[in-house]
């Protein structure tokens, strides 16, 4: 029987998971290596809902390995590149997605980080500047002069550079 590990989310709730599953996280792995599975593992930076989502990913990837996503992206639709389940997994609200990225970064889970980052990249790929600003609700803090300068510099490059 495999060992269970107790993770404590930001809210202080305890989630019990299989040790094998969470070993994907380098952070948790090093914590277990340090102090064993007996002790609870506090994860004050990950909320419960995100932690559950991360664990869902960890469980799935054990049985359905995910190939490394090629850089740069071949298509703006992740479905063309990776299995459907993974695309559905990251097809969530932006806020949740960023939280997943932060959590994956904090917990040091490379495949999840890559997947979520690729998802964000698809939201930028092939879009116009205005679309990108709108999608991510980015404030345009460039002065008109700066903007004109970038446009001038980049006009040739956009066409010429591959």
């Amino acid at each position: 029987m495999s060992t269970m590990v107790k993770l404590i989310s930001q809210e202080g709730e305890i989630i019990e998971v299989d040790q094998e599953t969470v070993m994907l996280s380098v952070l948790i792995k090093s914590m277990i290596d340090d102090s064993g599975t007996e002790e609870d593992i506090p994860l004050p930076n990950v909320s419960k809902s995100i932690l559950e989502k991360v664990l869902e990913f960890c469980k799935h990837i054990k049985e359905h390995p995910l190939q490394e996503i090629e850089k740069p992206l071949k298509s703006a639709n992740l479905r063309d590149i990776i299995p459907e389940w993974y695309d559905d997994f990251v097809d969530v609200e932006q806020e949740t997605l960023f939280e997943v990225i932060l959590a994956a970064n904090y917990l040091d889970i490379k495949p999840l980080l890559e997947l979520a980052c690729a998802k964000v990249a698809t939201m930028v790929k092939g879009k116009s500047v205005l679309d990108v600003r709108k999608t991510f609700n980015i404030e345009n803090d460039l002065t008109p002069e700066e903007e004109a300068q970038i446009l001038e510099e980049n006009k040739w490059a956009e066409e010429a550079i591959q």
Partner: peptide
């Protein structure tokens, strides 16, 4: 940056025009 590595050069150019 990790996200940007998935982008092509042309998309990077567009991204550069979004904000500082």
């Amino acid at each position: 940056l990790n996200i940007f590595t998935y982008l092509e050069k042309a998309d990077l150019y567009k991204a550069s025009q979004c904000c500082t």
